[in-house]
């Protein structure tokens, strides 16, 4: 994948200006994904003294450099390393949030979030509900984690566990596709009064570079974006596969003379069903694409919802495209994630 000229990224300020998501008066700067995340963290630390940033190896900048220079600028009380314990990190973060802070906790790899699963599912998600009228909540909690395949991560540096969290009412699950989307979505997640799981496709940390507004801005959660309009088919995706979809669409439109609409879900739960249904009602066809395994994945929920909400408009069964139901064996990675071939030749 060549990101350097990919049309999904804003290579010039003019494409940013054409998108109403971004502040129009802002200046721009070229950033990759980790730099855009860093800008969002920095903005929050600078403007809100309640913000804390912590996790394993966060103080020196993090293994993916997202927290670079933050400890130096904001001090070791607000940006710090934790001991190596994911359940500890998330439990600690929940406690901070319960006491009115805005903790942004980093899990070093999404593959290692499972020790914290109980804290996320049983505690973070249910906090507001069980507190009821006491007024307690943990809005302000954001748990960030790098996810997805990079081609050599094998079993434990490749996972995209978003579907495990989209099953959980009470959590918001966000997964951005690019630096500029990430900055706005992360700032919206930090501002949000519900706990947010923020997954970052780690292959894009350095590879995806685009113009990003230097000002702060929020991209609303639970809203999908129509990345490209089309008439004959809808492709729903999120994160890294959007680049594949976009390339495949370009090829298909050329080869078959069709017109394809591309949607980025952006927030995977609670998700923007309406935008998806509207699109499918118009096009009559839908494919849902994600990198994670197909079984009980996000695609299952989206496909079922399309079937419920746009059945009479459908010209063909909804297709799902995702990783095979196996693990990410090192030698087999290139066969295991959706690519242009598996998408076009089905």
């Amino acid at each position: 994948m060549d990101y350097s000229s990919h049309p999904l990224l804003n290579h010039s300020p003019s494409s940013l200006r054409a998108n109403a998501s971004y502040p129009q008066s802002s200046s721009f700067t070229r950033q990759n994904l980790f730099q855009a995340i860093n800008s969002a963290l920095k903005h929050s630390l600078r403007t809100d003294e309640r913000t804390l940033v912590f996790g394993e190896d966060v103080a020196f900048g993090g293994v993916f450099r997202c927290s670079m220079d933050l400890a130096t600028e904001f001090g070791s009380e607000r940006v710090f390393n934790t001991p190596l314990s994911e359940q500890g990190i998330v439990g600690f973060a929940i406690g901070c949030a319960a006491q009115g802070m805005k903790p942004i906790a980093e899990i070093q790899f999404a593959d290692y979030v499972y020790p914290a699963f109980d804290q996320l599912v049983n505690e973070a998600a249910k906090w507001r509900y069980r507190e009821g009228d006491t007024g307690g909540h943990i809005g302000g909690l954001v748990v960030r984690m790098p996810c997805g395949s990079v081609g050599h991560g094998a079993l434990y540096h490749s996972q995209s566990p978003e579907a495990l969290f989209t099953h959980i009412p009470g959590l918001r699950v966000v997964l951005p596709r690019s630096p500029a989307r990430a900055k706005g979505l992360l700032l919206a997640s930090i501002a949000c009064n519900d706990p947010v799981i923020f997954l970052e496709p780690k292959i894009l940390y350095r590879a995806a570079v685009e113009q990003v507004p230097t000002e702060a801005y929020e991209i609303p959660l639970s809203q999908a974006e129509v990345v490209k309009e089309g008439k004959d088919m809808t492709i729903v995706s999120y994160g890294q596969p959007l680049y594949l979809c976009s390339s495949a669409i370009a090829a298909a439109e050329k080869d078959f003379g069709i017109s394809v609409e591309l949607l980025d879900l952006q927030t995977l739960y609670p998700w923007d069903k309406q935008t998806v249904l509207q699109s499918v009602q118009k096009t009559g066809r839908a494919i849902v694409v994600h990198e994670s395994m197909i079984n009980a994945g996000v695609g299952a929920e989206v496909a079922a919802s399309i079937q419920e909400g746009a059945f009479l408009h459908l010209e063909a069964p909804v297709q799902r495209l995702g990783g095979w139901a196996t693990h990410m064996g090192l030698a087999f990675e290139s066969f295991n994630i959706p690519d242009v071939t598996s998408k076009l030749l089905r």
């Binding site: 804390l52 009380e77 500890g88 600690f92 973060a93 929940i94």
Partner: peptide, 18 residues
Amino acid sequence: TQIPQAAGAAYALKIQAL
């Protein structure tokens, strides 16, 4: 589950006092 939360809550109190 409340035990690491208590640690975090205490950290929040500490920062707020600072």
